[in-house]
């Protein structure tokens, strides 16, 4: 059984950039901010590429949905080792952290999964911008495929997939047959950095562009953003000089 892997990659604000909410409360300021591949998506790409290297997968297709700049993210996936890429294009004004919502993304991915004849779809468990943690589950629901979530281990064995999931009180292992959708957690692997030769090689790989309007899917947002605000700020308290003083303070407040 050879795997045909479809892996989703999202372009998000870089994890190390300080989040600034716009004063008019319309969203997080993305102007002139460093953008990168969502860290959980990097793990998904790495896992797909490793399956390819172990000859368990015959092809790895990276998919990104959004404005023109998403091509950069797809190039990164190609440099990491994906064979080819598909870019479902939206207009440049589309904010992928607010306007393009997981339900619509899952519907688009469902179509691309059919087009590419994928039998394993790997996705990050959540994106670090809207933090929804939904797309993989929605997609599996639409396709009627089994899903593994928050994966810290994936074993491919003939037509069966065994997935270890990071759950609230430890680990939970489930198995399923293919085709399937799996979302990745942090401990699954450590993504590689693409080296110069692979970046050069990636330039020659194809990125197929598909206009989202050609898919006939209603992608209009179901959630209207009324406002985006900064959380209440906590102010720094005091420094105490000794453990004794700390215990006194905590006792006074009835905490110990």
């Amino acid at each position: 059984m050879s795997l045909r892997v479809l892996v989703g990659v999202k372009r998000v604000m870089d994890a190390y950039v300080k989040v600034r909410v716009k004063p008019d409360k319309t969203g997080v300021d993305l102007q002139n901010v460093k953008m990168s591949m969502n860290p959980f998506c990097e793990i998904a790409v790495e896992e797909a590429v490793r399956l390819r290297e172990k000859k368990l997968a015959s092809e790895v297709v990276a998919l990104s949905i959004g404005p023109a700049k998403c091509q950069e993210t797809l190039r990164t996936a190609l440099a990491m080792g994906a064979d080819r890429a598909i870019h479902v294009t939206t207009d440049d004004a589309t904010r992928t952290d607010m306007d393009l919502q997981p339900l619509a993304v899952a519907k688009i991915m469902q179509q691309i999964a059919k087009q590419t004849d994928a039998n394993l779809i790997l996705l990050g468990k959540q994106s670090i911008d809207d933090d929804s943690n939904q797309t993989g589950q929605l997609l599996a629901g639409f396709l009627g495929w089994p899903q593994g979530n928050f994966a810290s281990k994936i074993i491919v064995d003939d037509k069966k997939l065994t997935v270890t999931q990071e759950v609230d009180s430890g680990l939970n292992t489930i198995s399923m047959s293919l085709p399937a959708v799996v979302t990745t957690d942090l401990r699954l692997n450590e993504p590689r950095y693409a080296n110069l030769p692979s970046i050069m090689k990636a330039r020659k790989k194809t990125i197929e562009a598909i206009d989202v309007n050609s898919l006939g899917i209603d992608i209009s947002p179901r959630l209207a953003y009324l406002s985006v605000e900064e959380p209440a700020h906590r102010t720094a308290g005091i420094k105490v000089e000794s453990v004794g003083e700390l215990v006194e303070k905590l006792k006074t407040r009835g905490l110990v």
Partner: peptide, 15 residues
Amino acid sequence: STYAGNAIATVKSSD
């Protein structure tokens, strides 16, 4: 909560 709790979004659902 969005952006790791750094932005609180108020959303209205039409579903």
